[in-house]
């Protein structure tokens, strides 16, 4: 196999225009504006202390390195912008919850080199109307994507964290 016969197709493929597998898909500010009809409320903060820290640790399977989580809430709606590492780098995800159920989940920023398939609507659509089941699990199964297992795992964890914290926010 002659090397020169192989270089041309390799170079050609390298020049294929990018389809933005890595990058910012939606600015967090735009996500929030969209969630609250252009006027996001002032952010509030929930502290990850005591039982809340234990529960989030159990969901993530590791300790969160944040003491506080910021969120935006008005009436029965809350919006959360969270990050979790898939394999190597954090994936930024926006979650909107209406009355305890996910109404929207979006991958806002993807920095990993693999697993970006989780950004597609065919995947995120599975989370819509998902609520919290006993054990802080989702009340429905999420079908994975082979080759994107760690990204799927990260998004599922963040959906659970958002639902759990929303429940804590509204708990008496």
């Amino acid at each position: 196999m002659k090397m020169k016969n192989l270089l041309f197709p390799l170079l050609l493929l390298g020049l294929v225009p990018p389809l933005a597998a890595k990058g910012v898909y939606e600015a967090p500010a735009a996500f929030l504006a969209d969630a609250f009809e252009g006027a996001p409320p002032t952010p509030a903060v929930i502290w990850l202390t005591g039982a809340k820290r234990k529960a989030v640790t159990q969901i993530l399977q590791h300790k969160p390195d944040r003491l506080r989580i910021r969120y935006w809430a008005r009436a029965g709606r809350s919006a959360w912008i969270l990050e979790e590492i898939g394999k190597e780098k954090p994936i930024t995800v926006g979650v909107v919850i209406d009355d305890g159920r996910i109404s929207r989940i979006r991958v806002l920023v993807f920095r990993e080199s693999r697993g970006d398939e989780v950004r597609h609507a065919f995947f995120t659509r599975q989370f819509e109307r998902a609520g919290l089941a006993p054990g802080n699990r989702l009340d429905r199964p999420i079908d994975g994507i082979s080759g994107a297992t760690l990204s799927v795992r990260a998004l599922t964890k963040l959906a659970r964290v958002a639902l759990y914290l929303d429940h804590q926010r509204t708990a008496p």
Partner: peptide, 16 residues
């Protein structure tokens, strides 16, 4: 940085 609005549940790769 680009994480102005995000409140990471974990740190960045460098942090973690």
């Amino acid at each position: 940085g680009p994480h102005d609005h995000a409140m990471p549940t974990t740190g960045s790769m460098r942090q973690r």
